[in-house]
Design a protein around this nucleic acid. Structure first.
Length: 513
RNA sequence: GGCCCGUUCGUCUAGGGGUUAGGACGCUAGAUUUUCAUUCUAGUAACAGGGGUUCGAUUCCCCUACGGGCUACCA
């Protein structure tokens, strides 16, 4: 019988979630929604020493920003809570004990010094992979080698111990991955993994199997870094007697550094000059700040669209997808196998596409906000006009203000190159007439302004191409920008007149040359 | 080192025994424009190498190379 699809995203709160994690969450979400299933978030905080304050809130806020909705989570209770492993602590021991009783696990009392010693010894003996396994466990201090009464005595005296899985010496462990097909691993390559730590917490391996089982998870979609330990997880399901409801696995290709050397890591943001985190993160210990996509001006839709295409594609020519469209198009068998390098240029392109598809009225809000911060007044209508002029040339919302400040402030300097090449006495003669006649224009709009300019040019026997660059220089100080007539329309006749007069004065040296 | 996974234009990728190996980003050129950008058009550029299997392999198999992951009482 087909079970209702239930998937989980299970980050550990050890710092900011990086984009690889966000992508894993996204794929889980898309799959859940596509299948009409349930999306769960479980916090994997079994390592108390790595807890970072704020990390959990960061995860929550990041997913909210991306539009990844959680059906069950620490913040939205469901039938299988709690959703923080630290709060599920009492649940794990019984399963570990069940394994001990069935002979699939055992107590071990070795100190970390003894473990190091064992590894050193094996290394010296040229053993390829020094590990606690079927062979070496018989030389260590555990319930397999110690007399029964001593084991009992040690346990009762409160001595520190761990519970290890007794991995069989020779056995092929097969695992079917939805992305890679059958993966075969020999049990000799797996060591006797610690299941319960001496602090009473389970390790990832035990906790993840117990929780996935208890939470009725049907599909485990996670990063490829988990593939090597997946056979171990299969063994756990088997020994716990849960193999018939074992989830299906899908191991996602990793996100790689742009230079193709290694998986994208937290430090790479600074190194390559783009964010690796969805949101800005301030490290609570060092105070270091890492930039985020949101603060960098990315629209969440663009970020999600871009991320979805890192390792997956719909098999059609369509590139722009809304979240509902992604859900509709998503399927696990269109996820690629090979690692994916991060392409900053393409990320920008997606953002441009989304920005341009927004109505001018919405874009105007970005500009208005920036203007407010600079204490500049501007009507909503003006802002809309400016944005409609600028939208084809911006990548980020912050560009609206950065690229359009001349609408509000007269130029304080002029592009040197244009000034020396295009500013001359003939142009100035045209501008004298133009700026004087501008305020008396009956119908003040871009078309009328252009008509006036043409009239003046005709009187002077000149063509529009001869003065346009210089006029732009006078009005904006720059060498390039959107349609000048529209700029002049927005700025207004009086301001334009004043700017032209200022330019004539300041650039006099060029005109006489 | 051992084990596991992978390898199509610079990048993201489609394809799959016989194709002019397709698209997108980037880049280049042309067109448009008052400039820059946009837009449009064109161009650039790839099946890692070697063996098989086959009438025919980029596609299937093996080996090598290269890349990546894992190798903790971390997840």
């Amino acid at each position: 019988m087909e079970r209702e699809v239930r998937v989980r995203f299970a980050p550990s709160p050890t710092g900011p979630l990086h984009i690889g994690g966000v992508r894993t969450a996204l794929y889980n979400y898309l799959f859940a929604r596509k299948m009409g299933g349930t999306m769960i978030l479980r916090i994997e905080d079994t390592d108390q020493t790595r807890f970072v304050p704020g990390a959990e809130d960061y995860i929550r806020e990041s997913l909210e920003w991306c539009g990844v909705e959680l059906d069950e989570s620490p913040w939205k209770d469901g039938p299988y809570g709690p959703y923080r492993q630290s709060e599920r602590k009492p649940m794990y021991m019984q399963y570990a004990l069940q394994l001990v009783e069935s002979g699939h696990a055992y107590y071990a009392f070795d100190t970390s010094e003894e473990l190091d010693e064992m590894r050193e010894r094996l290394k010296a003996a040229k053993v390829a992979t020094p590990q606690y396994n079927a062979i070496t466990r018989m030389t260590m201090k555990n319930s397999l080698t110690l007399p029964e009464d001593e084991v009992k005595r040690r346990l009762e005296s409160g001595e520190a111990y761990v519970i290890r899985l007794k991995v069989p010496r020779k056995e092929e462990v097969r695992l079917k991955d939805m992305i890679r097909g059958w993966v075969m691993v020999h049990s000799s390559a797996i060591d006797d993994k610690v299941l319960m730590k001496s602090d009473g917490m389970p390790t990832y391996h035990l906790a993840n199997i117990v929780d996935d089982h208890l939470m009725k998870i049907t599909h485990v979609i996670r990063g490829e870094e988990w593939l090597p330990s997946a056979p171990l997880h299969v063994l756990l399901y088997r020994y716990l007697g849960w193999e018939d409801t074992m989830p299906e696995f899908a191991h996602l290709p990793l996100l790689l550094k742009p230079d193709g050397n290694g998986k994208l890591s937290k430090r790479d943001g600074d190194k390559f000059g783009f964010p690796v985190f969805p949101l800005e993160w301030k490290d609570p210990f060092s105070g270091d700040i890492s930039i985020g996509y949101r603060e960098n001006g990315f629209l969440p839709e663009a970020f999600v669209n871009f991320l979805a295409f890192l390792g997956w594609n719909p098999g059609t020519q369509q590139e722009i997808f809304t979240m509902p469209e992604l859900i509709e198009a998503f399927s696990v068998d269109r996820i690629g196998k090979s690692g994916t390098k991060f392409d900053w240029q393409k990320a920008r392109w997606f953002n441009e596409q989304y920005l341009r598809s927004k109505p001018d009225e919405e874009l105007a809000q970005y500009l208005l906000q920036a203007l407010e911060e600079h204490n500049i007044e501007c009507s909503f209508e003006q802002a809309v006009k400016i944005c409609s002029l600028m939208k084809e040339r911006v990548t980020f919302p912050s560009d609206f203000w950065r690229e359009s400040s001349y609408f509000f402030e007269a130029p304080t300097s002029y592009n040197e190159k244009v000034a020396s090449k295009k500013w001359n006495s003939q142009a100035v003669a045209v501008f004298e007439d133009f700026k004087n006649e501008l305020p008396s224009l009956a119908d003040y709009n871009a078309d009328a302004i252009k008509e006036l300019l043409n009239n003046v040019l005709e009187r002077h026997g000149m063509k529009i191409g001869q003065v346009m660059q210089a006029l732009r220089l006078a009005v904006t100080g720059l060498e390039a920008g959107p349609d000048l007539m529209h700029i002049i329309e927005i700025i207004g006749a009086e301001e334009t007149k004043a700017r032209i007069e200022a330019a004539i004065e300041k650039l006099a040296a060029y005109a006489s040359a």
